[in-house]
Design a protein around this nucleic acid. Structure first.
Length: 958
RNA sequence: GCAGGGGUGGCGGAGCUUGGUCAAACGUGACAGGCUUAGGACCUGUUGCCUUAGGGCUGCGAGAGUUCAAAUCUCUCCCCCUGCACCA
């Protein structure tokens, strides 16, 4: 039995003693492998092993391929989570405390976790300990945390540079806001953790025909303004006149509260809704004068409480007018103008995307709003949910496939017309935008207050929308290696869409924002170039450099080679040698880099990583490679606190051993897909490892010296596998690589032994290559095996095996696969023929294997070239073979030609020899005498049935 | 809504870029057998349907198309997942 705990501690110590993972620049080609640093608000669970283990496996692999590899580690603590954590502990949050207990955090430590400093220190310790146990080949001398002063100096430099380059901009920014606490509200600040969604609404100003005031109508579809027949107000809504920007607006009282954070609103006086209903308003685009009517659906707290009515395209508006008519409300003459035509699909235009439910007959295509109600088999008195559904459907179809029939943008797609009109109307000040929380359910802050939108002004952004910057990043992306491949498109798309991003925060841990020291730098923005820090942080510590010494001159010189080292030394007071070392180290390690992370960071961190590197570092140091790995599921389910299925990494290692867990998580699934962690899967690794472990004893008992067919086969397989595995490893296809060198190699080993392979040297070569190739992923086990088979060096410092193409022998492998297939065939033949009455109560006395004549293979492959029997027969390659026999043999294949493939070009003689050589194996397997014959020399009536890859089999019963 | 990614056998999940060797890798589950006092582990076989000699049929979200040939290419539709910013 393998004692994983024992081999883990043993070999981890050996690596540590040999300083295997503490590289410095040398004459080899360097490689810096980094993974996104973990947040320190919890100890690691088994899911964390995926990313860090993938990076570690890659680092170890590349080291064995001869590169000088650095794999450092750091910790992330900036932002609000640690503070929120401390607050929750202070409040005695039971859920959090239970979670900590799951991770075996001691009560006395939990008590101390009201202190953010203690929290970060505690979890840094816990994480480092667990990742060490997991066998991470990390240079721990270089660890740091993003809250330390030394690190802050790098971030200050980063932001001063961004400012210099004009990449920091100020502007307004809508955010969720609690009016009670006067604080921004994010997802974790709301009841039920609802993410406040903010939506932009266009507000169009309709001038009151009788005064200087405006009706301000909120709408999602300003392009329908051409069809406005009237305005709607709510009869039970309280309205006011309010002064906004020197103009007088009619709007609901509620809306003045909701919008108070977005514009300066001075409520003047309340206005009776009856008064409004008596008025008329002027359409700013068509200049038509329209009446103001009561709308049953108008709500005080949505938009402005005033709505423009487009009955031709809005089911609610259409229904409201119909209801007024039904109530004998005096309505003026109105024209229901059709504004948009949906392009039909298969003749269907109204409802082309709607396939469920019972369709009603559409009789009024000229009034789309009505047509959609008809389609849904409903009417104007329908419940609101039906009208809502109709609204959604018409909105979707018209936005998608609608073309404008009227107005300035006639002929354009509706969606484009909408954007153009928004621009036009806001430019002419006939409209403006408001923002609203668009969640279905209202969102409440944890304090109970309804969340509103606040438009923050003078907010600093990093302007990722800058065109020059984007273009440069796009060019860099073209040259980058990205694994898996599909993320290339994703990155392109994200770069295309990413825009200015707010970069300062009012609260949280982190580096003070230089342009507003009251604020801190947002915690994704401060972790975009930290990999730079790994390359020289240990030098800074070694030379006892203080934070205040790290001036801009230092980073300018070290990172961008600006200035003179002696001047920098004088300014900073740092030794010239230390500064030089820092610069040299950075340049060396940044010559090639690989960045690893889970897919959730693709959309933010990884893109920002590229952007910031491009902006701040010289071109040779720009990102080279990004590797994205999937997440980990546990027993078929996503690991989550609510499911209570989170397994602490430490527990997992103690229970299963670090290597089997590494194998399952890293090689258990393709790089980009979720990997399935289950007890069963780990157990299967445990037992396979035992088999390999035991194979060493088998090896020691082997004594064969002469090379036989099966030995050549084994050599061929070993080298084929090395070649394939290497290709896969280079592309980070760990799963495919390890299917080759672990699962399939184990099967080869078994087949080799079953077939009577017993050559000590061959078996030794096999095991050695397998151990070497397992070293990156199961380093402790490989190390143990390495020494068990007599190795004296450390396997982690050994070279990855080179495939020997000269030992790859396709013919030998082909023959062997014919033999393997024949085993199954014989078994089947025995089973089937035993049921024949004539064979009742008889035993097998012999098995005759009849190998097809050589011309059959030649003829068969010719048929696939010539596609025609006549031409095959005439082919000079078949000279001397009876044309009648050839034609008879090929006949059955002709009509199946499209599905046939060539058989390997292996001479029948080789196949024959192969069977002769394996007769002993067959004899042992079937307990019968084995005869091997060539078809041409056989007297058996079954001889003619032999096929190139399938010998004919005759079972003799007696 | 916008953007990205998907829909394959009992399940998970390959394959689809370069259409044919795909009834579909690999894993897992199920069934039968072996080994065992038994269980576990391990080994062997079976696991879409039909077929007592290696054969046939149906099949990869739905529909249509291209092709001698489609899980694989094109189009349309339906459904699912993820992200959308103060949240690391």
């Amino acid at each position: 039995m393998i004692d994983y705990k024992d081999i883990e501690t043993k070999w981890q110590k050996a690596w540590e003693d040999a300083k295997v993972f503490q590289p410095e620049p040398n004459d080899k080609e360097g490689l810096l492998v980094t993974a996104a640093i973990p947040y320190v608000n919890s100890p690691p669970h088994i899911g964390h092993l995926r990313t860090y283990g993938t990076a570690d496996t890659y680092a170890r692999y590349m080291r064995m391929r001869g590169r000088n590899v650095l794999y450092p580690f750091g910790f992330h603590a900036t932002g609000t989570p640690v503070i929120a954590f401390a607050k929750r502990i202070a409040k005695g949050d039971k859920e959090l405390i239970d979670e900590l207990k799951l991770f075996h955090v001691a009560d006395e430590d939990i008590k101390k976790m009201t202190d953010p400093v203690f929290i970060t220190e505690y979890f840094i310790r816990a994480q480092e300990a667990d990742f060490r146990r997991a066998g991470m080949g990390v240079d721990w001398r270089r660890k740091f945390v993003t809250t330390e002063p030394l690190f802050s100096k790098l971030i200050e430099w980063q932001f001063s540079k961004l400012k210099e380059k004009g990449l920091l901009i100020q502007g307004t920014h809508p955010i969720g806001w609690c009016t009670n606490e006067s604080q921004p509200v994010g997802q974790h600040d709301t009841k039920n953790d609802a993410q406040p969604r903010i939506e932009e609404i266009t507000v169009v100003k309709f001038k009151d025909a009788e005064s200087d005031a405006y009706f301000v109508c909120a709408t999602y579809r300003p392009e329908t303004i051409y069809g406005v027949t009237n305005l709607f107000v709510g009869e039970s809504v309280g309205y006011v006149s309010a002064i906004v920007g020197g103009e007088r607006y009619y709007m609901s009282l509620e809306s003045t509260h909701a919008l108070a954070r977005q514009m300066k609103i001075e409520v003047e006086k309340t206005v009776d809704v009856k008064d409004l209903l008596a008025r008329h308003a002027i359409n700013p685009v068509t200049k038509e004068t329209v009446p103001v009517l009561p709308g049953f659906f108008v709500k005080a707290d949505v938009g402005t409480g005033v709505v423009m009515s487009v009955p031709s395209h809005a089911p609610f508006d259409y229904a409201a007018l119909e209801r007024l008519r039904a109530g004998n409300y005096a309505l003026p003459q109105m024209e229901y103008k059709k504004l948009i035509e949906v392009e039909p699909l298969n003749g269907v235009s109204v409802g082309r995307s709607w396939t469920e439910g019972k369709r009603g007959r559409v009789t009024h295509p000229e009034i789309p709003a009505l047509a959609y109600l008809e389609l849904l088999n409903t009417n104007t008195m329908a419940v609101e949910s039906s009208l809502e559904f109709a609204t959604k459907l018409i909105y979707r179809e018209e936005s998608h496939w609608g073309v404008m029939l009227v107005g300035k943008y006639r002929g354009l797609k509706e969606a484009e017309a909408r954007e153009n009109l928004k621009k036009d109307l806001t430019a002419s000040r006939e409209a403006f935008f408001i923002y609203e929380i668009s969640n279905q359910e209202p969102v409440y802050c944890r304090c109970g207050t309804k969340v509103v939108v606040n438009v923050v002004s003078d907010q600093w952004f990093i302007n990722y929308g800058d065109d020059n910057w984007k273009n440069e990043v796009s060019r860099v992306l073209l040259k980058m290696r990205i694994y898996p491949d599909k993320y290339k498109h994703t990155f392109d798309a994200v770069v295309d869409w990413i825009d200015a991003r707010a970069t300062e925060r009012a609260q949280g841990l982190g580096t003070k924002f230089p342009l507003n020291p009251e604020h801190i730098i947002e915690s994704l923005s401060d972790s975009t170039i930290y990999m730079v820090f790994y390359t020289f942080v240990h030098i800074l510590r070694q030379w006892d450099v203080h934070p205040e010494q790290l001036s801009a001159e230092f980073f300018d010189y070290v990172i961008n080679s600006v200035g003179d080292v002696s001047v920098v030394a004088r300014i900073t007071g740092i030794d010239e040698i230390a500064i030089g070392k820092c610069r040299q180290s950075l340049q060396y390690w940044y010559s090639d880099t690989s960045r690893h992370s889970a897919p959730d960071l693709v959309y933010n961190h990884l893109v920002m990583y590229i952007f910031n590197h491009v902006a701040l570092l010289p071109p040779p140091m720009w990102p080279k490679q990004i590797v994205v790995n999937g997440m980990v599921n546990y027993e078929g389910e996503k690991m989550s606190k609510s499911l209570g299925n989170i397994i602490p990494l430490g527990d997992g290692i103690a229970k299963y051993g670090s290597d089997p867990m590494r194998f399952i998580e890293i090689a258990g699934a393709d790089l980009d897909t979720e990997t399935e962690f289950s007890v069963d899967s780990v157990n299967s690794i445990l037992s396979k490892n035992e088999t390999l472990y035991g194979a060493v004893d088998v090896l020691n008992a082997m004594n064969g010296v002469e090379l036989e067919h099966i030995d050549y086969w084994m050599y061929s397989r070993i080298n084929t596998r090395i070649a394939k595995a290497t290709e896969h490893m280079d592309r980070l296809e760990f799963r495919d690589a390890y299917t080759e060198v672990y699962y399939n190699a184990l099967r080869d080993m078994k087949w080799y032994m079953d077939r009577g392979g017993h050559n000590h040297v061959v078996m030794r070569d096999f095991l050695e290559s397998a151990i070497l190739m397992l070293a990156p992923i199961m380093p402790h086990f490989a190390e143990e095996m390495w020494h068990r088979t007599g190795g004296t060096s450390l396997v982690v410092q050994e070279k990855w095996p080179e495939p020997n193409a000269g030992l790859v022998n396709a013919a030998v492998e082909d023959v062997e696969s014919v033999i393997e297939g024949t085993v199954d065939d014989i078994a089947e033949v025995i089973q089937l023929s035993s049921k024949i009455d004539a064979n009742k109560n008889k035993r097998i006395s012999g098995i005759k294997i009849i190998v097809a004549d050589n011309w059959k293979r030649i003829a068969y492959n010719m048929l696939l070239d010539h596609r025609n029997i006549a031409r095959v027969v005439k082919d000079p390659g078949l000279k001397g073979v009876d044309p009648g026999k050839v034609a008879k043999f090929l006949g059955p294949f002709v009509n199946r030609l499209p599905t046939l493939f060539k058989v390997p070009e292996v001479d029948s003689k080789e196949v024959y020899d192969g069977f002769r050589g394996s007769a002993g194996y067959f004899k042992k397997l079937f307990r019968a005498e084995i005869t091997v014959e060539m078809e041409g020399a056989s007297a058996s009536p079954r001889a003619g049935r032999a096929l190139p890859t399938k010998p004919s089999i005759e079972v003799i019963w007696a």
